[in-house]
């Protein structure tokens, strides 16, 4: 590996730290929703995709079944597969390296990489590996801290953790609401999920909104 330019290193580190620190919120809400510390840490180590992990915790926390939790989380994980399609021809790795690359293919590593690529293809590759590894390290450390902290706290509601989870989801969706149609879809999904909660089994009102998204996407 050749020398890493300072802009790539700085971008990777700052993204790793800020995103990683948010692992505290995940660890804490996982435990607050009934997951053990070990399960919370395994989700961060093995699933390693923030939105999917929060979805598992959110659906189970709302009383949903394991199947609807897995389905919701997996639909959110599809985009990582598409990032993989984008990154594979740039990284050109195989064997064990491809397995590692796949595991750290997430929003942040892809975004930093594509940003750094404007400088050179090499900077793009450095950005991917540095950001992926950095987020992985900090995300897992902070998950453990959050899980242990929440375990010590007791009643999650007294600490506002039951609001931290929806606030985190809101923070994840906010930057995606670019066009008018995006905002309409968000409002329709909110209304649908609330209206269907007393009617459908827990978890289904969430996953059913994926079909609203598909209808929106195919219509235009």
């Amino acid at each position: 590996m050749s020398r890493i330019d300072s802009v790539t290193a700085r971008d990777s580190l700052s993204v790793s730290l800020t995103v990683g620190a948010y692992g505290v919120a995940f660890g804490a809400s996982a435990v607050a929703n009934g997951f053990t510390v070990v399960q919370s840490c395994l989700l961060s180590l093995l699933t390693f995709s923030g939105a999917s992990q929060f979805a598992v915790v959110g659906v189970i926390g709302a009383g949903g079944s394991a199947i609807s939790a897995i389905a919701t989380a997996s639909l959110l994980g599809v985009r990582n597969g598409l990032y993989g399609v984008i990154m594979a021809p740039r990284l050109k790795v195989s064997g064990l390296k491809r397995i590692v690359a796949a595991q750290i293919t997430i929003d942040e590593s892809t975004a930093v990489s594509l940003g750094a690529e404007a400088r050179s293809p090499e900077a793009g590759r450095h950005g991917f590996w540095l950001t992926g590894a950095g987020v992985f390290l900090f995300w897992n450390l902070f998950t453990l801290a959050g899980a242990l902290g929440a375990q010590a706290m007791g009643d999650a509601r007294a600490w506002g953790l039951d609001s931290a989870v929806p606030a985190a989801f809101l923070g994840l969706v906010w930057p995606r609401l670019v066009s008018h149609a995006d905002r309409v879809l968000a409002v329709v999904s909110v209304a649908f999920a609330i209206a269907m909660t007393p009617v459908l089994p827990a978890g289904l009102p969430i996953i059913a909104t994926a079909f609203i998204a598909i209808a929106f996407g195919l219509r235009r």
Binding site: A51, F54, A55, G58, V59, G61, A62, T72, L75, L76, V78, R79, L82, D162, V165, P166, F169, L170, L172, V173, R176, L177, D182, L185, A186, V187, S189, V190, A191, F192, A193, I194, T197, P205, I206, I207, T209, A210, I212, A213, I214, F216, G217, L218
Partner: peptide, 17 residues
Amino acid sequence: VNALIPIALLSALVAVQ
């Protein structure tokens, strides 16, 4: 569709939570 699915799911999760 790939860009819209996370918007729908995350919005629904905000609502339900």
